[in-house]
């Protein structure tokens, strides 16, 4: 009994740890999506910010500085993307894919330029757990939920804040209306372009934080393709979370559960070839998307740019 309880506790704790990049990346993608901009560069931005944030953290010996750098780089990506899609009205998917490609390239180029091709991997200290006083003393649950690294708390907080902001403030309502009907929003005096710029830039900063989390939590090193498709999974998460902050939060937990499960089974048994366990998150995502397709809602103007001078949208 103790054994099982111990395993359950470990599983849940790992899940909380694993859900963070999903939450942050998906909320970032969702925010831009709510104004009608479908950011398909999430994976590329995560890779670049993981790489740059890791290097800054390593060089400066400061995890915090690494996070700030990652968010700034993410924001910079967002600014350029916002300019090209919203102001220049270039196709969002084309621009997104270009930035995905650019981000993937930069993520491996920069470490090679700075460290060269060396056999010794630079390592940074991983994020420490930050027990919350009192709450972390609750038996069983305390250690699972309140003895985690800071970004676990931050990611949950961000989700709640985004929910409050989007559904309980007028600025949030305006932002949502831009993604549903930009022409209508514009006629009501809402600045469509500013809303989109703000949403994309803040969204990309969150994606940047999601990216830098990966080298900071698991191994303390940056490896090529460290994201393993988490950016794409985050986009999928937006779809079956219906582009709403709270369902995305629950969805992230589910994703994290699958990832931890695949990992635990991989260690525990050799009955299933481990390659099939590696496939599990991606296959499960597709299956879940099939199962939830009827209920899924997307912002009406997701993926289309707004042109004031055009009569039809």
């Amino acid at each position: 009994m103790d054994q099982i309880l111990h395993e359950v506790a470990f599983f849940l704790k790992q899940m909380m740890l694993t859900m963070v990049p999903f939450i942050l990346a998906a909320q970032g993608t969702m925010l831009a999506g709510r104004t009608g901009v479908f950011n398909v560069a999430t994976e590329g931005i995560m890779l670049t910010t993981a790489s740059v944030g890791f290097i800054i953290a390593f060089q400066s010996n400061s995890i915090l500085l690494g996070m700030v750098a990652a968010m700034l780089v993410g924001g910079l990506f967002g600014l350029v993307m916002a300019y090209m899609t919203t102001s220049l009205k270039l196709n969002q998917f084309v621009i997104g894919l270009a930035f995905f490609f650019l981000g993937t390239g930069i993520s491996t180029l920069i470490p090679k330029l700075i460290f060269g091709v060396s056999l010794v991997q630079p390592v940074i200290p991983t994020l420490q757990n930050l027990p919350i006083p009192l709450l972390s003393k609750i038996p069983f649950l305390g250690d699972i939920f309140f003895n985690q690294n800071i970004l676990v708390y931050v990611s949950v907080l961000v989700s709640l804040l985004l929910y409050y902001f989007l559904y309980r403030t007028s600025f949030g309502l305006e932002m949502r209306s831009v993604g549903e009907n930009p022409k209508m929003a514009d006629s009501l005096g809402i600045n469509v372009f500013r809303q989109r710029y703000v949403a994309i830039i803040i969204g990309c900063m969150l994606i940047g934080l999601a990216g830098v989390y990966l080298p900071m939590v698991y191994t303390g090193t940056f490896t090529e393709q460290i994201t393993k498709g988490r950016g794409w999974l985050a986009s999928a998460l937006c779809f079956f979370g219906g582009w709403r902050p709270l369902p995305i939060l629950y969805g992230s937990l589910f994703f994290a559960g699958i990832e931890v499960l695949a990992y635990r089974v991989q260690i525990g048994t050799s009955a299933i070839p481990y390659q099939f366990l590696i496939m599990l998150p991606y296959v499960a995502t597709i299956v879940v998307m099939v199962l939830t397709f009827k209920r899924s809602t997307t912002p009406k103007f997701l993926g289309s740019n707004y042109d004031r001078e055009k009569r039809t949208l």
Partner: peptide, 9 residues
């Protein structure tokens, strides 16, 4: 976009 890229992995 999502299904094609997820099948890559």
């Amino acid at each position: 976009i999502l299904t094609t890229v997820l099948l890559n992995f």
